[in-house]
Design a protein around this nucleic acid. Structure first.
Lengths: 397, 397
DNA sequence: CTTCTTTTCTTGACACACGAAAGTAACTCT
DNA sequence: AGAGTTACTTTCGTGTGTCAAGAAAAGAAG
């Protein structure tokens, strides 16, 4: 795909799409010399030279020292000026809102959290505004790039709207506009799992991968996709609905009304319910995990079944999309020691691709990491990075 | 990554990518005036004007008459010169090879078929060569654009190799090179379902759709994907493995060794087997269908189960990828009257996206249509069309 | 039969993205 | 000091696309 040359370029130092790619690469892999950037992006050195001046002039990127090579002219190293901006990343949960403050290199420099009494839009948005003010107290506002927000549900990024969220019981809730109004800052909203995709792509297991999925397990099961180097959100932004993969018509009833959905087999609630079925009463998945680790055979059996369901689900994912990697995240990922073996066995049995031989990467991300991902998203959106191709809509491409 | 502008352009009238898009649009939607082309592609009229001369000079496109508008200068209509080239499209099946000859507008002007005694690569390739010679007998070879080939299995298009095909028992079989050698023509090879994706995108239900799946049912279950306007083949070209979606751990055993794969629930063999289980012996799915249509309750029940499995599988597909449309093709699609209601019910029950409300498009494609899709692929590859960003591989002696 | 008006195409001037090739810079080794 | 090596820069050609202004081809109005 070509970029959109010829069209009136947006103002600012990030008018060019390739320039944004250069910036993102230096951010994630810097310090790098011009020649290294060119090689990693498949560009010619002259192109990199041409793209840099605005970034250097705008103090987004700095030349920091030179790296002597064995022979020849030493490389001049380029680095992101992390102090150029501050960025706020927010993760919205049903019981609390988590925020981090990062620098322009997406390094966390502050954090905050607020409990919320209910999930009414006004409550949550007010809490988010307060949290942002808190994080930014004493900070020069002109230094702040913007706010990235991750919400669990169907999000329309362009419109900044959360169309639906079962978790929060939201319908067509405007998120970006009120937050931008209240804070005076640019706001980007995305599905929360997709913020994690950005974080994994930039700093995590997906660094050198062009197609992977992030699957989150916990109260629900979610999925974010990076396909061919770009985030995939589907025709209407709803892609990644993975929790209701129908895995077993004889399985337990799911909240969606069907039987044997992945979520009905592998969520925290499913674990508690299955264990109760075995005559063992626990009130949370953590207790179930503790029992299993203590050797309780019923609990171990439940986790094995969870692992099998997960393995079969991940196999479906890998087979259909021919992914290079799967990152398993979310609260439930911490119980990997319990469901891992059965999951791997299930995946191996069902998967065709070689990706099944690569271990699933486990990353039990904290809320802070999700929020950091939201900050990454804001940075990525600001630099129109490789993850966010705001392509010109063509009717017949 | 960016495309390769600036590089020395390949010779011929299709050096520029946008030119190929203009050509493809006129092919599929023509006759069109310059202004209409510009509007549909999101270009300015001047750009279209600039791109056309080589196509007109090369007689790829012709000005055919003018369309008087109510007011103003009448539009000069552009059309593809269908007679400019002939194209061969081939579908390889385990028992026979089907070929069609099409003009440059992908209209079928000839067909041929050869049975093959076995599936050895040499046998099949020899049969394909003979078939091609047959189709092209009496034709000026310089008029022939090339050969498009569809093979069921994992195909590496760039290398022109069939990595594996369970159906044919092939492993790392070179296809493009020997055919190009034997015929002296350019050859493009793809997975057969993907050739159908191209055909559906150009002329079928997917005309105005940017993301859809073609699911084929018959001896096996296959799937081809168009995501965001481009064919999706995954990290290693294996995407679309859909037949072994694990739908029921208690289901019948599949050839892959697992239980309850979609293919084990909905393939022709599954139908015959399930009916035998009910005490009714038939030797083919067609017989089963005839029984069901005659009112046999066991057969009707079997087809209802097939429909349910298909509906659950399609729901998984639509949910995960947020598709706009599903095209159901392959021999088995003809039995839509039997499994359709159960399929639709299953899909509706499990699917979240609105796509589930759009009816699944049924297209029981004959082998000729698959072969035509292969011809479309060759045309698309030749013009580096919207579906095929990778440049034409010419396996020329 | 002119002369508008409307729409379609064409032309010319410009801008930007990118690469190849050739030139310049900075360092080490001999 | 010169030769060798690698890093960057400059120049130029091509692809891709816009905009603005003009030419062309009709019907409608006078």
């Amino acid at each position: 795909m070509s970029s959109n040359p010829g069209r009136p370029a947006p103002s600012g130092p990030f008018g060019e799409r390739t320039r944004a790619e250069v910036f993102a690469l230096i951010l994630t892999d810097g310090p790098l010399s011009r020649v290294e950037v060119a090689a990693k992006l498949g560009l010619s050195p002259s192109t990199v030279t041409r793209l840099l001046p605005p970034l250097l002039d705008g103090d987004y990127i700095r030349e920091t020292g030179r790296a002597a090579t064995a022979l020849g002219r030493p490389r001049r190293l380029l680095e992101v000026n992390a102090a150029r901006h501050l960025v706020v990343g927010v993760k919205i949960s049903p019981t609390h809102v988590t925020g981090v403050l990062t620098d322009m290199a997406a390094r966390v420099v502050g954090r905050a959290e607020t409990p919320v009494p209910d999930t009414l839009p006004t409550t949550i948005l007010r809490a988010t505004t307060a949290l942002t003010r808190d994080l930014l107290s004493g900070v020069d506002t002109s230094l702040v790039l913007g706010i990235g927000v991750g919400v669990g549900g169907h999000v329309g990024r362009e419109a900044g709207i959360c169309h639906t969220s079962a978790l929060l019981d939201w319908h067509e809730v405007p998120v970006a506009a009120p937050l931008a109004e209240a804070t005076g800052l640019p706001v980007v909203v995305e599905n929360d799992v997709n913020t994690l995709v950005v974080a994994e792509r930039w700093f995590g297991a997906g660094r050198d991968t062009r197609s992977f999925a992030v699957v989150t397990i916990g109260p629900g099961v979610g999925c974010g996709l990076l396909l061919g180097g770009a985030m995939y959100t589907g025709a209407t932004g709803m892609a990644g609905e993975f929790g209701h993969l129908p895995l077993d018509p004889a399985g337990p009833k799911c909240l969606c009304g069907n039987h044997g959905c992945l979520e009905a087999l592998a969520s925290s609630a499913a674990i508690v319910r299955d264990l109760a079925h075995e005559g063992v009463r626990v009130s949370s998945a953590e207790q179930a995990a503790a029992l299993a680790r203590a050797g309780n055979p019923a609990a171990r059996e439940v986790y094995a079944r969870v692992g099998n369901a997960l393995g079969r689900g991940l196999a479906a994912l890998v087979n259909l999309l021919d992914l290079e990697l799967i990152v398993l995240a979310g609260e439930g990922a911490a119980e990997h020691d319990l469901f891992g073996p059965a999951m791997t066995a299930g995946l191996r049995a069902h998967a065709f691709s070689k990706a099944a031989e690569r271990p699933v990467h486990i990353d039990p991300a904290t809320d802070d990491l999700w929020a950091r991902g939201a900050a990454c998203l804001m940075i990525g959106a600001a630099v129109a990075g490789p993850l966010t191709p705001p392509r010109v809509e063509r009717h017949h491409p």
